[in-house]
Amino acid sequence: MIDVSDAATDMPPGAQLLGRQWLGFDDAGETALIRYQAQPSFTNRHGTVQGGFLAAMLDSATGICALAALSPNLTVVTRSLDTRFRKPASVGPITGRARIVVRTDREMIVEAALVDAQDVTVADATARLRVLQRK
């Protein structure tokens, strides 16, 4: 299993921008929990979080969930991300909940949802990820 804890020195710049914090798995060990911090600079002309930032959070959540299930010699890359925007998202904490629904030696399908501080789902996605040898 890959260590996906967010040590500041190893966190990718995109994850830093999104304020990503790995929270671990739920009590059943099936759903990865990741917190993001939506900044005022992420908002659109309506004052809500722009969809591209939500998609980046979903891509991050699906990827880190997959990485947490892999051996250290493997990694994943996103092949597709089917994103659905459900409700406007506000500035502040947003929690990603991701789980693997299909896993083979070469591919993973991971579903994720983003929920706001009131536990309202603001967006969700299904990602198809390719499993690769780490270089």
Rank of each mutant, 00 (worst) to 15 (best):
G24H: 09
F25H: 11
F25M: 14
F25W: 14
A28T: 14
A28W: 03
A28G: 10
G29Q: 07
G29F: 04
G29C: 08
G29A: 09
E30Y: 02
T31A: 04
T31Q: 08
A32H: 01
A32F: 01
A32T: 02
L33A: 04
L33Y: 01
R35G: 03
R35S: 13
Y36R: 00
Q37F: 06
A38L: 07
Q39C: 03
Q39M: 12
P40S: 10
P40C: 10
S41G: 05
F42I: 07
F42S: 06
N44P: 02
N44H: 05
N44L: 04
R45E: 10
H46K: 08
G47W: 04
T48D: 08
T48Q: 04
T48R: 05
V49S: 04
Q50H: 15
G51Y: 06
G52Q: 08
F53N: 08
L54S: 07
L54H: 06
A55W: 04
A55N: 06
A56W: 02
A56T: 11
A56P: 01
A56C: 07
L58Q: 02
D59T: 00
S60L: 00
S60N: 04
A61W: 00
A61D: 03
T62V: 10
T62L: 02
T62P: 00
T62S: 03
G63K: 00
G63A: 09
G63Y: 01
G63H: 01
C65F: 02
L67G: 04
A68W: 04
P72V: 14
N73V: 12
T75P: 01
V76S: 08
T78K: 05
T78H: 06
L81K: 08
L81A: 13
T83G: 09
T83E: 13
R84K: 14
R84M: 13
F85Q: 12
F85Y: 15
F85P: 02
R86I: 15
K87V: 10
P88M: 13
P88C: 13
P88G: 12
A89N: 11
